[in-house]
Amino acid sequence: MASEMGVPPNRIPVDLDVGGNETGHIGKPIFAKWLERLGFDAQLGPFYLGFWGALSFVCAGAFTFIWLITMAAQVGYNPVAFAKYFVVLQLEPPSAQFGLAFPPLGLGGWWLIATFFLTASILAWQVRLWERAKARGLKPYLAYGFTGAVFLYLVIYVIRPMIMQDWSEAPPHGIKGLLDWTNNVSVRYGNFYYNPFHMLSIFFLLGSTLLFSMHGATVWALEKYGAHEEEAEIDEPGTGTERAQLFWRWTMGFNANAYSIHLWAFWFAWLTGVTGAIGVLLSGTLVPDWFQWAIDARINYPQLPAVPVELPPPTP
């Protein structure tokens, strides 16, 4: 039974197994055959809940409830108005006058409570990723990778506002509000395109997209040779992996192998979040103006003196 539920007999108990059956899992596997026609795995579930999963879902639920109910209050709980203005409504952080103090609920207190639950949910999910790997005796690489995204989140919502002594530095909860915050943070600090860590983060973001395009397309093109069975191909490369390696060697003079491409993948994706977080963390704390920074660093140049033009006489 244990092996049927996918749990090896030597599993290390690191969680409370608060699921439906003796292994802490919920539900029976469901098979959706149509997924196989897309080349995808057909099995859904069973799902593992556990203490950290339960905590994460409860906190995410509390955040979602506070977020939605405070936004609904702004339109008088009118469902049609709520639907019309859903992307515009936002739960705003406390204004700058409150600093890091706890403001009245309607003036940003709900934002602080909601953000507390959102942060708790994300951190519980981080622990969950770690303990799910530990329970199987696997190295927790997924938890390592998730730290990149968590670091970016914490810098934007918690660490940088605390350094700036002001919760109003954090983004509001809301779709338009988050987009506006992103737009404004660039404008306030002299254009984020000149922020070298923003450059690096975009490099790794687009680089990750490029890497997955290359790796995914290569393996997709070689499925009939078994190249997608990567665990086997790493130890014993067969004709599929040989063709994959030759493709890139012939195309660009260099190739990864079935193992090292996943090192490239992991580090590119992880560094996207980490370099982005550093870029946000420095803005306004150490660097007030990235445009001026780029001029001082001699990678950007003040405009050349304009050709003198004759101004029209002022109108009386």
């Binding site: 790997a133 696997l138 690489y141 997924l142 390592y144 996943h262 992991f266």
Partner: peptide, 8 residues
């Protein structure tokens, strides 16, 4: 990437 690295 992390799934393959942790497995192998």
């Amino acid at each position: 990437g992390s799934a393959i690295l942790s497995a192998v």
